[in-house]
Design a protein around this nucleic acid. Structure first.
Lengths: 212, 212
DNA sequence: TTACATGGCATAGCACTGCTATGTTTCATC
DNA sequence: GATGAAACATAGCAGTGCTATGCCATGTAA
């Protein structure tokens, strides 16, 4: 019997927050609702406060990242696919560095871990296919290989996006990935070729993720 | 002819900020100076504001990290030393996760890049010694190998310290490091043994870094 | 159709943040 | 000593997130 909360307000606020994040404007309670016609209380009814807004923003980031990874077309070469997924991950993070920072900055809430896992799942599948195809040894755990790839990707993008390393350092990506997969049993030359192919695969045209 | 600023105040404030960081108390201008006898203006004369304090804290973190790396005793096995340095890096970061977060959180100022480079320099030297000893190919650039090791270490410690990955994920460290060095030409078995030796080397007794 | 109650939403004010304008004190220099 | 510049203390500023309070829209029930 109560008045239902307008979901449009929620998406409007998240969208606006994402834009402000991209424009590098400081996101404050009042600056967020300014011009939207809604009052500051809307933030509390929809998100429970600014913390909730940041959490929603973080979750939205994971959702978008997952969507981006889903656009990576799979081939018959699972190693190439793994590299393509890693490249897409880096590309997405570096295209929206502020959103990426929000995603991993604060102490991650347990509730948006599933969203992060959903993204990781793509890597796990590629790793599993690599194993099934005999590219890596049968005793390689797909999850472990996926996590290791994630570690490499996250380390790379963090050090590049946050400042210390120049953009050119991204070239270490294929090297590290090849080293990892080769250590898992893939043939060095073939691995190198697959990784290079996947790494430099062009992004899909609809790369324009509306968020941030 | 002016009155000189008391350097003791500066170190007192930094030390107190580090303690508050470790205690997970929010560091605000007023809470920082509370109980110290100095007024809020001291923060401005010594650091130019809160931003300057964070910057000083960041620099102090890099200094401490460099000091920690310097305590790693070198052996005749440069690969083992590289692994020991990486392990010390992880250990230092995970012992003081909040300080580590401050170091890499915000956009890094160019002025404290030298401090970060000083820490990296240890890795570069170990990489160079590995090359000179013939453990890795002659065409391996020590700086590149050091950066790649850094990427692995930073990715690992970030994902573990910030939440997504459990502490047990640190075990991926030796795997990744071995993969990297093996790809650089080291013998797989020998490399693995060296890395394991360096990784599990006990920390020096005076590990108690006074900061944070 | 009408009365009601429930929760969305607006307004105003709270304690707190970093910062600055304005004195007051202190000390190296002449 | 006298001087003057800088360190330092005090008070007040705009802005922050949040909450107490009241109004009003809306789905349900009579």
């Amino acid at each position: 019997m109560p008045r239902p909360k307008d979901p449009a307000v929620r998406t409007q606020l998240i969208e606006r927050a994402a834009v402000m994040l991209r424009e590098r404007e400081p996101i404050t309670l009042r600056s967020l609702v300014a011009g939207t016609g809604v009052s500051t209380m809307a933030v509390y009814t929809h998100f429970g406060g600014m913390d909730g807004l940041w959490r929603a923003l973080r979750q939205e980031g994971f959702t978008r990242l997952g969507a981006r990874l889903r656009t990576v077309a799979l081939s018959e070469d699972p190693v190439q696919d793994l590299a393509a997924l890693a490249a897409a991950y880096l590309d997405s993070a570096l295209t929206h560095p502020d959103l990426y920072r929000v995603m991993f900055d604060a102490s991650v809430d347990l509730e948006d871990l599933p969203a992060a896992d959903a993204g990781l799942e793509h890597l796990v599948r590629a790793a599993g296919r690599s194993r099934d195809a005999g590219r890596v040894r049968a005793d390689v755990d797909p999850l472990e290989l996926a996590v290791q790839s994630w570690v490499v990707g996250h380390g790379l993008v963090s050090l590049v996006a946050t400042g210390p390393l120049p953009r050119a350092a991204l070239d270490h990506g294929p090297v590290l990935l090849t080293a990892l997969l080769t250590a898992c049993g893939d043939d060095p030359q073939r691995c190198r070729a697959s990784v290079e192919r996947g790494w430099h695969r062009p992004a899909p045209d609809d790369e324009r993720t509306p968020i941030a």
